[in-house]
Amino acid sequence: MTNRVRVERARHDLTQAELAERVGVSRQTIYALETQDYVPSTALALKLARVFETSVEELFALEEED
């Protein structure tokens, strides 16, 4: 699974710490998401989509092997 969290965060001019605060997780979790090392829960995916004012499908995408 891939995600566009880093791109959207840059587009909204947010730091990792600011985004983490807004969705209620640690900065390490945002880092793990951006490096594609962690697939978030549905609740966190929805919160991220809400912050970025987009849909979960726009933010996350399945890859060939998924």
Binding site: V25, Y38, L44
Partner: peptide, 11 residues
């Protein structure tokens, strides 16, 4: 617990 305990911490 960690200072910020979230879903990644639990995993």
């Amino acid at each position: 617990r960690e200072p910020v305990e979230d879903e990644l911490t639990r995993k």
